[in-house]
Simulated assay, not measured.
Amino acid sequence: MNRRKLLKLLGGGAVTVGSGKALYNTQVGYGVVTGTNVTEQDLRPLIAQYMRVDDYRAELDEYAVELSGDTVAVLDGDDVLAERSVTDTTPEEGAAVDAEFDLAGGPVEELVRDVPALRAGEFVVEGAKFDEFFDRIADADASPFSTGATRDGYDYADAETVGAFIGADPADPERVVTALRAAFREHSSYDKPRYVAGSIEDNILFGTVDLRKHFESPVGFEALESGEATGLFCTELTRRANESLHAVPAHEATAPVVSMFVSDTRHKHAYTGVATILREDGKLVMAITFLDYMHSTLYDDLKLTGVLGDGLDAYNSRHRATDIYWHR
């Protein structure tokens, strides 16, 4: 049974379920009637819960720096040239190692200074709307190696593949964010038929029949470019965004960022977090913003951007976070 026939069979029940679900998702649980949203939530515990800062390697001009457990090492290929304890080494001692091997950017100093605090959850979280985020971090004292170390666990997309898909330099995360919005709109759409089928499967059939399988298609970058992907869900849009923002190492990007998978189980929704680690007045600060590629794609699909806005900014009263995953 193809998508068109199944949708016709589902008929009016889909409209009823879809309308009820839309009301539930947009009006309830964000703090309007009850609940909360990301502008009100204490985000630090959610961020710290699943954050790992480990198993990190930064390739530099001549050497590499690795973080593993309590050890920061300088390597030439596989040969270890120097090792220091993260917990027992002062930033000044780390800076001496950087100077000895002429390591640009001071990676050892930065890691021994920041990693213990990150692992202990000793940092301040500052939320920002998307149009303020990159201005906020542009002139700040960013920590590119510490930011890169928080990416532990992610699969990286090939930078050339990402660049071809978005038509922009993947080393520029601000450009990646907006280019992804345009690329998703051009090459795909929000998978509304699969959403309707899933709503009926969950709320009428209570999972006894798998309707979603009739609407599934490949969702990788190649499938999107070729037109093989028939539509994306919020989870798939979020994963492609995570991969795109991690295609270039943080210390090689124009602004060091880490991307997160934000889950709202209350509304069965997922969207993207983007953050960077800063040092300000001796304190560790995580500046963070949130992006919703489902909204930006769906609003364009329905020709509603003039009424509802662009839809990309998710640091607002229409988004909440149940979990913030760094490795999903």
Rank of each mutant, 00 (worst) to 15 (best):
residue 126 E to S: 07
residue 5 K to L: 15
residue 5 K to Q: 13
residue 259 S to K: 04
residue 51 M to C: 00
residue 154 Y to H: 14
residue 250 A to V: 04
residue 324 I to H: 02
residue 127 G to T: 05
residue 254 T to W: 05
residue 303 K to S: 14
residue 84 R to L: 15
residue 140 A to M: 04
residue 258 V to G: 13
residue 282 G to C: 01
residue 159 A to N: 02
residue 309 G to T: 05
residue 165 F to W: 06
residue 281 D to Y: 05
residue 175 R to K: 14
residue 132 E to A: 14
residue 125 V to Y: 02
residue 65 V to E: 01
residue 230 T to G: 14
residue 120 A to V: 07
residue 216 E to A: 03
residue 138 A to E: 11
residue 281 D to A: 06
residue 302 L to T: 12
residue 270 A to P: 09
residue 119 R to F: 06
residue 44 R to P: 04
residue 208 T to Y: 10
residue 40 E to L: 12
residue 131 D to P: 09
residue 53 V to E: 01
residue 7 L to P: 08
residue 160 E to G: 11
residue 111 L to A: 00
residue 106 G to R: 02
residue 130 F to Q: 15
residue 259 S to N: 07
residue 262 V to A: 13
residue 314 A to L: 07
residue 306 G to Y: 02
residue 313 D to A: 07
residue 86 V to K: 03
residue 297 T to V: 08
residue 123 F to S: 00
residue 279 R to M: 09
residue 59 E to T: 12
residue 197 A to E: 00
residue 45 P to Y: 03
residue 86 V to D: 01
residue 11 G to L: 06
residue 107 P to R: 03
residue 69 G to C: 03
residue 2 N to M: 04
residue 206 F to H: 13
residue 22 A to H: 11
residue 17 V to M: 08
residue 231 G to M: 11
residue 133 F to H: 01
residue 168 A to Y: 04
residue 101 F to T: 00
residue 271 Y to A: 07
residue 116 P to N: 05
residue 247 A to L: 06
residue 299 Y to F: 15
residue 153 G to Y: 02
residue 322 T to K: 13
residue 17 V to I: 13
residue 9 L to K: 11
residue 215 F to M: 05
residue 32 V to N: 11
residue 138 A to R: 09
residue 259 S to R: 05
residue 245 L to M: 08
residue 325 Y to V: 11
residue 214 H to K: 06
residue 192 K to E: 14
residue 210 D to P: 00
residue 71 T to Q: 09
residue 125 V to L: 01
residue 316 N to F: 06
residue 313 D to F: 01
residue 195 Y to K: 10
residue 27 Q to R: 10
residue 179 A to H: 06
residue 269 H to S: 07
residue 36 T to I: 08
residue 36 T to F: 04
residue 240 R to W: 04
residue 76 D to F: 10
residue 327 H to A: 12
residue 86 V to E: 02
residue 241 A to M: 08
residue 110 E to K: 05
residue 247 A to Y: 02
residue 84 R to C: 12
residue 65 V to P: 00
residue 294 M to P: 02
residue 112 V to T: 02
residue 88 D to P: 11
residue 290 F to N: 04
residue 286 M to N: 07
residue 309 G to E: 04
residue 143 S to E: 15
residue 11 G to Y: 06
residue 142 A to E: 11
residue 39 T to N: 06
residue 189 S to E: 12
residue 273 G to K: 01
residue 127 G to S: 09
residue 8 K to F: 13
residue 149 A to P: 05
residue 289 T to K: 00
residue 21 K to G: 10
residue 24 Y to Q: 15
residue 247 A to M: 06
residue 216 E to H: 02
residue 34 T to I: 08
residue 303 K to N: 15
residue 300 D to W: 01
residue 182 A to Y: 03
residue 146 S to E: 09
residue 149 A to N: 03
residue 221 F to M: 08
residue 44 R to Y: 02
residue 42 D to A: 12
residue 51 M to D: 04
residue 142 A to M: 12
residue 174 E to V: 06
residue 21 K to A: 14
residue 247 A to G: 02
residue 139 D to W: 03
residue 189 S to W: 08
residue 242 N to M: 14
residue 94 G to E: 06
residue 151 R to V: 12
residue 161 T to D: 14
residue 255 A to G: 07
residue 127 G to Q: 03
residue 325 Y to M: 10
residue 232 L to A: 06
residue 13 G to V: 15
residue 35 G to S: 05
residue 251 H to G: 05
residue 164 A to G: 10
